[in-house]
Design a protein around this nucleic acid. Sequence first.
DNA 1: TAGATTGTTAATCGATTAACAATC
DNA 2: TAGATTGTTAATCGATTAACAATC
Lengths: 220, 220
Amino acid sequence: METKEIKSISKAAIRRMPLYLSLVKQQIAMGEKTLSSTFIAEKLNTEAIQVRKDLAATGVVGQPRLGFCSEELAAAIERLLGWDNLQEAFLIGAGNLGSALIGYEPFIENGLNIVAAFDNDSDKIGTEIRGVKVLSIDRLENLIGRMHIKLAILTVPVEVAQQTAERLVSDGIEAIWNFTPTKIIVPDEVIVERTDLAAGYAQISSRLATKAQRKAAENG
Amino acid sequence: METKEIKSISKAAIRRMPLYLSLVKQQIAMGEKTLSSTFIAEKLNTEAIQVRKDLAATGVVGQPRLGFCSEELAAAIERLLGWDNLQEAFLIGAGNLGSALIGYEPFIENGLNIVAAFDNDSDKIGTEIRGVKVLSIDRLENLIGRMHIKLAILTVPVEVAQQTAERLVSDGIEAIWNFTPTKIIVPDEVIVERTDLAAGYAQISSRLATKAQRKAAENG
DNA sequence: TAGATTGTTAATCGATTAACAATC
DNA sequence: TAGATTGTTAATCGATTAACAATC
């Protein structure tokens, strides 16, 4: 098989990959050997051209008239995302949101393995959340190195987000997934991804507000 | 006061507003009357020009040498986002993630009021989650109209996401905040915002995978 | 005044969409 | 073959960044 040029891939395309992957897996489960960009676009309420462009980045070559081989596509997306390997992670902050992430199905299904949670609340330390032990935050330093943990999921209160991030960095963490509603500042070599629930709320409430204002203007 | 032209505002800018708002509120709490785009940019690890451009959309006019009036800016951002009014919402699906959203501080602080949760698990129905009653999903139809609820937060299992969304739409919901890892298809007039935890995971794990591959190539 | 900052207009960058030849 | 689909190249669109005059 010829090796294809490495295609550049947009951040937005990466973010869409999980949608493609779960649809492809669904089709595999139903015994479908192939699926086309047209089909995917229809199911995801998007455009076929975007699907084709995105899938080009996986290196999978489609067949005119038939589309893409389901199995090949699933494997290629998983490889692209690194979801073909198990990813061990520490959860930092075992509050409501953190606890919810332990046991979040789409993570478990795709190789994200939260191996321990850390907190400074003595009531929580020593307990288990769905089988994951909650340890004292003081043991973080020791364990990151010893267990070769690359990824930390940061769900501490916003007030301590920056200082906790700095601790993680000095302990040698490679990537921080920041769920706190603030930006953390860390050295460039540390990978940071922020998932911002407040941003989503901003977007939906501003759209609702705009709609309400328009309605008021029409009736006024 | 002159009314300014309504500036167009990008989706990305809307999503950044909560970051600006919390920083501005922090400054107010510290007694600072003004703050500049330079200051904001430094704190948020971004560029001053982007901050100025974003803030222009609020209609607040800054003063050369001084920057923006903190109080005025906070009020303008809250108005822009509709966070100056209480937003009542139903939570659909009282699982782990849904439960975590009840009581999520940044929502509560900014006017998002989850007034009831709905589930079809008889073990959950009748219980309370941090003061919010869990009701049978069968009562949804009746209550959306009666309580004039505009916003539904969808945290049901992915398998029932589409059918639940359709129910919400036929009951007259105006906006759906979709936390399920799938796209839901609804009429255009219904506002849909999707917060996709799997997308964030895709992004961070692909970056980790790329880094690991580069490292392997160097050592190989 | 000198200098820091705002706000506008233009340039750049990145992502999406359109057009269309190639393929089976 | 006819027709659906792929994949590439070009055009468009939207967001970010740069340049710079205006302001206090």
